[in-house]
Design a protein around this nucleic acid. Structure first.
Length: 198
DNA sequence: TCTAAGATGGCA
DNA sequence: GCCATCTTAGAA
């Protein structure tokens, strides 16, 4: 008899809430990346930021565009965009269909270092996914994974926290913005060495 | 069409 | 602190 907790996959309905509610709940969840050859890489979310309607920092603040239309879609899909012409950022679309809302994943604690990542001499292996652009490189996320459904067996999906305990979170303002700087919509795992800023 | 700025990260 | 590098949105 197996009484141990089985893995709980995050369902779209769980994400159908305002992003500032979902973002702290996502810390401690695990992102699973599956490649076409079946290889699987996993990392625990340690840092998130929420973006939503009436939020001047949100890409969808003004109107629907070719880039941001995914944010208006139903919860449980990916929103991937390119920033500064060189880095990708990975978001999880939240809230009801039609509400422009998403959670930016800013840092992961990797279960192990994927073989395609070669660590430079002296590099800290626990910081390979400490930052939104870095985690996309480690998980090989680019715009081809934009607007994908996050479900088991796909390229990406999410698993709920395994522990019983709520992780201890710290809430702060968001990073790297010029608009909406006062909204305290960033959360990270307290004392984690894998967050984007130490 | 043109251009300024961007939810970054690496290196000096 | 500086800058690479290029897409995007918004102005002209």
């Amino acid at each position: 008899m197996n009484l141990s907790k089985s893995t709980q996959i995050v369902e779209p309905s769980w994400l159908a809430r305002p992003s500032p509610e979902v973002a702290p709940d996502l810390v401690g969840c695990t992102i699973v990346r599956q490649f076409p050859d079946g290889t699987i890489v996993r990392g625990m979310i340690v840092e998130t930021e929420a973006y939503g309607p009436n939020d001047p920092a949100c890409h969808a603040y003004r109107c629907r565009t070719q880039r941001n239309w995914v944010m208006f879609g139903p919860p449980g899909i990916s929103y991937v965009y390119l920033i500064y012409g060189r880095y990708h950022c990975f978001n999880i679309v939240t809230d009801q269909d039609g509400v422009a809302s998403a959670v930016l994943i800013r840092a992961l604690e990797m279960e192990c270092v994927p073989s395609w990542i070669n660590l430079p001499q002296g590099a800290k292996r626990h910081r390979i996914a400490a930052g939104p652009g870095k985690l996309c490189e480690v998980l090989q996320i680019d715009r081809s994974l934009n607007a994908q459904i996050l479900a088991i067996g796909q390229s990406l999906w999410l698993e709920h926290r395994s522990g019983e305990l709520q992780p201890e979170l710290v809430q702060t303002t968001r990073i790297g913005l010029s608009q909406g700087v006062d909204l305290p919509w960033r959360w990270y795992l307290k004392d984690s060495l894998c967050v984007s800023k130490l």
